[in-house]
Amino acid sequence: MRVLVLILMLLAPPAFALDPGEMFADPALEERARAIGRELRCLKCRNQSIFDSNAGIAKDLRVVVRERITAGDSDREILAYVQDRFGDYVLLKPPVAGHTYALWLTPVVLMLVGGLAFAAYMRRPRRAPEALSEADRAAAQALLKETP
């Protein structure tokens, strides 16, 4: 199989993100392959999934994913398999682990901080505005009445 991958690699002119040659005939399998592919990063590209990328390396990875599907692996197993070989970098959705707690907690923490700040702001003691004296009010009305 390795050799076949090599053939595919050499044959394909690097031009097209997905080409029909690699696709499954079964639409359900193909749908699965794409769902998994959208979670995987093309290693050379900037935040593109392997299904959106033209690079040869993305194609290799797609072929690997399809191989694993054919071999009967579950989606999780496939992602774990790829992660094993290429590291966390290949996962577009970073794993939840020691070095990414901060990342995953960010939305929660920000929401909390925002909520607390909001509550604090709304509950802060407020001075009622001092009422204007009648004379001041008249002066202000005069000021405001003058129309250009």
């Binding site: 505005p129 009422a131 204007l132 001041d136 009010r137 202000a140 009305q141 000021l143 405001l144």
Partner: peptide, 12 residues
């Protein structure tokens, strides 16, 4: 109206 007048006077 009262609040606006107050602020306008203050600003002036």
């Amino acid at each position: 109206r009262a609040e606006i007048e107050r602020r306008a006077l203050h600003a002036a």
